[in-house]
Computed example of a mutant assay.
Amino acid sequence: MMEAILHGWILSLGLILPLGAQNVFVFNQGALQPTLWRAIPVVLTAALCDTALILLSVLGVSLVVLTVTWLKTILYAVGVCFLLYMGYLTWRSRPSVDSGEAERFSPQKQVIFAASVSLLNPHAILDTIGVIGTSSLTYSGGEKWGFAAACIAVSWLWFFGLCLAGRMAGRLDTSGRLLRVLNRVSGLIMWAVALYMAWMMISS
């Protein structure tokens, strides 16, 4: 059991660490929201979406994404469009910490955007299916669920930690310059991911 848990922990940490649209969005909301509590919707949404993907992968349900070509194409197309749009909104935002005029996402927007970058990102889904789902086949019974629980725990701890790091960065930035730079970097990352996804969709 401990081997399965350790395997799930290390594997999930390796998958979640790379900088992507989901991580950037969680960090930014932690930095932009006036209190840590106000950024909880984005953390919960991202963590719950990851939990759902992990459970579906371990159960084998999400393998349908790999076998239905038209479904995968639609997923890519929607993901590209949404990331282009979200990158535009992020690039345009002009936070100003001193004046309290930062452009912040409402709880509803946080939930919608976090769910979108989590569930409309084909690479995140394919990574979950291809890596976590495939790795879980090594185990059965309690070991399989221990493996899945470890993967899920990493997601929850990571997103809370990422939001807290964003909050600390936001408090250190009294002029709003750091947040403006982060928004520009975030927008570029989202556009880059969208273009890469578009290229994958066309070449596949």
Rank of each mutant, 00 (worst) to 15 (best):
S175R: 06
L178F: 12
A169E: 00
H123E: 08
T134Y: 09
V193M: 10
S155T: 09
C163F: 09
I132S: 08
G176R: 08
V154N: 12
R184E: 01
V181Y: 11
S175Q: 05
G161I: 12
A124L: 15
N183M: 04
V117R: 00
A165P: 06
T138Q: 15
W156H: 11
G142K: 03
L119P: 09
S186W: 01
L178D: 03
W191D: 01
P122V: 14
R171L: 11
G187K: 00
S155E: 12
V154I: 15
R177F: 14
F159D: 11
N121I: 03
V181P: 02
L178Y: 07
L164N: 02
W191M: 03
F159P: 05
G146L: 10
M168I: 13
W158Q: 13
V185R: 01
P122S: 14
R177H: 08
I189M: 08
L182S: 04
F159H: 15
I189A: 10
L172C: 06
R180Y: 00
L172E: 04
G166D: 03
W158L: 13
A165D: 05
R177Q: 12
K144C: 07
C151A: 13
S135T: 08
I125K: 06
S136V: 06
N183T: 00
G176Y: 08
G146D: 04
S136N: 07
R171C: 06
N121P: 04
S140A: 13
C151S: 08
V131D: 01
G176C: 05
V185Y: 04
G141I: 09
S140K: 10
G133V: 09
V131I: 15
L179C: 07
A148L: 10
L164Y: 13
R177Y: 13
G166W: 06
L164S: 09
M190Y: 04
C163Y: 02
N183A: 00
L119S: 07
T174Y: 03
L188H: 00
D127P: 03
G130I: 01
I132H: 06
G142N: 02
